[in-house]
């Protein structure tokens, strides 16, 4: 396990890490999410001993990191670091020279380098000059350079930056296969598709602190902390039949269950969706619409369970349970649309 305890770091007067307590479990893929400048890269560089904290400690497999040359060498054999820009990491002019750079310097055999070249389909590229490679090929070269040292932990700083769909899929496959082989990953990204594809634990950073941790992506949190949301735009606002119906601007109104339909009729609402209500409401939300779903209070748990499986913003307005006085949609101080005083959540598995 890699762990940081109360980690503080600053570049000059600017504090970048403010007491970070981070954990990455062995054999898992931990995703570090956050906007630009949140401190993700700085935290990652501490995990490989590239930066020395101003205060706090880094622990790897139960051993506290020391910053003398010999200890750092041991850490770097154990923890490989893949930089965001492959050109920053490629040191040698040709593919083979770059891949074996680590093993030669660490006085290891080039057994793993040969394996890495084969595994990353770089056979035949050994004598190629690195500046003649495409972005995706360079990415594979830097990953091969790290695998050549056979580290237990692999740190990746935004590995999908600048990659096309093929490149992204290739990186996802590589990570999944290596994970099967027992490698541990700590990856920083603001690409939710990628995070969703490989992640097992999600850690959100903002302003040098860890602000949220979970086992699944929380779209509301992700939105709040400036992550790219892809095409997630729609909102499903769910109201139990026995609470006050909020006055919100919606594209569709749906009523699910007899009690909900009676309530909608009583309120004089023009209901658009009355059949296959849950499926059609989710579909409309996936399309990017805002759907107000009035449902029987007994069905709330079913709606919540199903809705959280889809890439939509899911919000529950439950005046009774939350004891709120107003349910109007507004904007929070971060400029993110949110329901004031309402319980809300949005997840994709």
């Amino acid at each position: 396990m890699i762990e940081t305890r109360d980690l503080w770091f600053s570049y000059g007067d600017r504090e970048v890490l403010k007491g970070v307590n981070f954990k990455a479990n062995r054999g898992k893929v931990t995703i570090l999410l956050g906007r630009n400048g949140a401190g993700k890269t700085t935290l990652l560089m501490h995990l490989n001993g590239l930066l020395k904290p101003a205060r706090g400690e880094v622990w790897i497999d139960g051993i506290k990191v020391k910053y003398d040359r010999k200890s750092l060498l041991e850490i770097r054999k154990k923890v490989g670091f893949v930089f965001q820009n492959p050109d920053d990491q490629i040191i040698a002019p040709t593919v083979w020279q770059d891949v074996v750079f680590g093993p030669k310097n660490a006085e290891m055999s080039d057994k793993f380098a040969k394996k890495a070249i084969k595994y990353l389909e770089l056979e035949g590229y050994e004598n190629r000059l690195c500046n003649s490679l495409s972005g995706g090929e360079k990415r594979r070269v830097v990953i091969a350079g790290i695998l050549a040292m056979n580290p237990d932990y692999i740190i990746m700083d935004e590995p999908t930056a600048g990659l096309d769909g093929f490149g992204l899929r290739s990186v996802v496959e590589i990570i999944e296969e290596l994970k099967e082989g027992g490698k541990t990953f700590v990856i920083s990204t603001h690409d939710l598709d990628f995070a969703k594809a490989v992640g097992e634990r999600f850690v959100y950073m903002d302003c040098g602190k860890i602000v949220h941790e979970s086992d699944r992506i929380d779209l509301t949190i992700a939105n709040r902390y400036g992550l790219r949301m892809g095409n997630v735009r729609g909102r499903l606002v769910v109201v139990p039949h026995n609470v006050e119906i909020p006055e919100i601007d919606t594209d569709f109104i749906a009523a699910m269950g007899i009690k909900a339909k009676e309530r909608a009729f009583k309120e004089g609402l023009d209901v658009d969706i009355v059949d296959a209500v849950l499926e059609r409401s989710i579909l409309r939300a996936v399309e990017g619409h805002t759907v107000l779903l009035i449902c029987s209070a007994e069905m709330m748990s079913v709606v919540e369970r199903e809705a959280k499986k889809f890439p939509i913003f899911f919000e529950v307005l439950d005046k009774v349970s939350c004891g709120v006085s107003s349910n109007k949609i507004g904007r929070d101080d971060k400029g993110v649309e949110a329901i004031k005083h309402g319980a809300s959540g949005a997840c994709i598995h």
Binding site: R76, K77, N105, M149
Partner: peptide, 21 residues
């Protein structure tokens, strides 16, 4: 600076591998 950091991250100890064509 970046080159120095990249070399540090990969255990640099003064060896530059050569090609074997």
């Amino acid at each position: 600076e970046k080159l120095d950091r990249a070399m540090d991250a990969r255990c640099y100890s003064g060896v530059m591998p050569i090609l074997d064509v």
